[in-house]
Write a protein that binds this DNA or RNA. Sequence first.
DNA 1: GTGAAAGCGCTAACAC
DNA 2: GTGTTAGCGCTTTCAC
Lengths: 338, 338
Amino acid sequence: VVSAGRERTATITDVARAARVSPATVSRVLNGTSEVSADRAERVRTAVVKLAYQPFSPARALRHQRTNVWAAIVADIENPFFTSVVRGIEDGAHERGYRVVLCNSDGDLAKEADYVDVAIAERMAGVVIAMASTRRSNLAPLLDRGIPVVAIDRRPARATVDCVVVDNRAGAAEATAHLIEVGARRIACITGPRGVSTATERLAGYRDALERAGMEVDGALVRREDFREAGGYDAVTALFGGRDRPDALFVANNQMTVGALHALHDRGIDVPGDVAIVGFDDAPWATLTRPQLSVVAQPTNEIGRVAAELLAGGGGGRARTVVLPPKLVIRQSSARPR
Amino acid sequence: VVSAGRERTATITDVARAARVSPATVSRVLNGTSEVSADRAERVRTAVVKLAYQPFSPARALRHQRTNVWAAIVADIENPFFTSVVRGIEDGAHERGYRVVLCNSDGDLAKEADYVDVAIAERMAGVVIAMASTRRSNLAPLLDRGIPVVAIDRRPARATVDCVVVDNRAGAAEATAHLIEVGARRIACITGPRGVSTATERLAGYRDALERAGMEVDGALVRREDFREAGGYDAVTALFGGRDRPDALFVANNQMTVGALHALHDRGIDVPGDVAIVGFDDAPWATLTRPQLSVVAQPTNEIGRVAAELLAGGGGGRARTVVLPPKLVIRQSSARPR
DNA sequence: GTGAAAGCGCTAACAC
DNA sequence: GTGTTAGCGCTTTCAC
């Protein structure tokens, strides 16, 4: 008789009763923790199927004092860079029997702290985090409790945790050097907020390249924005507001690049004729824009997979840092200007 | 004395001891379930802070037989349409005290079934799902157990659950009618796989528009692909392989549109000169392409928020279906061809 | 091999 | 108001 739902969900005791064994035996069969005679095991398996039994994982977690869930806390769930990284984490987690809960801190320290609390309350097995700020961190409560943490993309200033990052400084320097080589003389840099390591490192790389070329770093050509589309738009508006316009742009993340391109278009500024441009992070649509966009591409999937590997390693011993190489992809937006 | 982590995490009993009250009183203070004298409440709060106590939610879940977590199971986490919808769900969930776990079925029925199992094992409070297939569903186990379900984007053929969808048929018809009006005579439709309602409905809308205009539906101009970028690419390759090329394209999702544009570019086909094109789903970069992309935009955030509202409503009574209007956004890619 | 029993952390029912 | 108690579903001793 199939009754219309809503009957009490079967527990291990129900299965035990149906199989005429003890709950302990059911547990042993399900987890393979010790030998069980063939016929009893069979009876258990039949009962499990018949009752559509699903172990209640909070009860397990209560026993084990630990879940098999990882939290991935990222600063912006709508940024394709992060979702792609998360894909990598998921793949790595799946292979190791973990599940991944994706949390969106929105770049907000308080929201991030909330999700850290959640991770603790749930006794999650580990946390992968792209921090809202690398200066002020919410990591201490996790570390105090011995919950393994891997920082991705952004490198915490103080806390010593495993990290997976890209060589931002080198990538930015390469991009800037490329703009110099192509003939640009007034190169602007649109980077992210203070207190986010990627923003700082990419700016440092930009400076490196200018200095190596014997060019002066003009403070008026450096804009700190918020890593969002609007930030890129505003930066371009400011940079092209007066005289002494830049003839090239290095933009330190994907969303700001979108904003910058919109602003350039709105002002009728031609790319790469009037300004050459190189962005950070590749995207599926980067070859659909006219001109096609030159970028510093990051190995997103690998970042996630390596993070999963480190997290599974459990943060034992010294904090490890894995630095992956970015790759300059030259397309049309950085063709020789003028 | 700050000891180097790893001491046992504080439990409610520890807090009770430190505050010289019973565990029940601690629980009452924390949950506000009944009045507690001011001084005891104060002692409890002090102890909570001092011990950095965090309630262990699996234990709560065990008591309550229910968590405060919703699962959002989507067919493709890297599709910005879905992440944007998830943002809406999160907003709605947050307001109501729920948290959202994002799960990626990858359009795969087996993975989807896995996540459904997880949702059951965790006794999640609800599930929002963009189904891998609307023909064969994994919903029965959820419904049997009385777990509220809201289907988004895709409408299940059989199961009766709450739905939030867009009027795909009308949106597709409008897009196609626009292409007709602009002078196109051989309009191709690149839609998604059989067994996904959005694919079917958008195709139906395309047919509607042709019929209304007294135009014949040519089967050779209809391609069923997989809603991924590669699908769009392949479709264009096939459509433009022989003679009798289309002079317009209606592409039924964002990722396939990217693929289609790549293929057109690779073949040197001019948009909109040789073919006009309208895609489905808007994107931040849609105005960066040259020509700018005409699309049928969906109210992604609202889809998520409405889903949250329905889920919180708990699926009581008859299954409700909310149909939201899409909006045709005309840009340059659908300018008069030739 | 197997079952009985205890207990993980929390809360709701019940006494006082 | 407050404490005592029982029990949620599961796993893991510990006897047998």
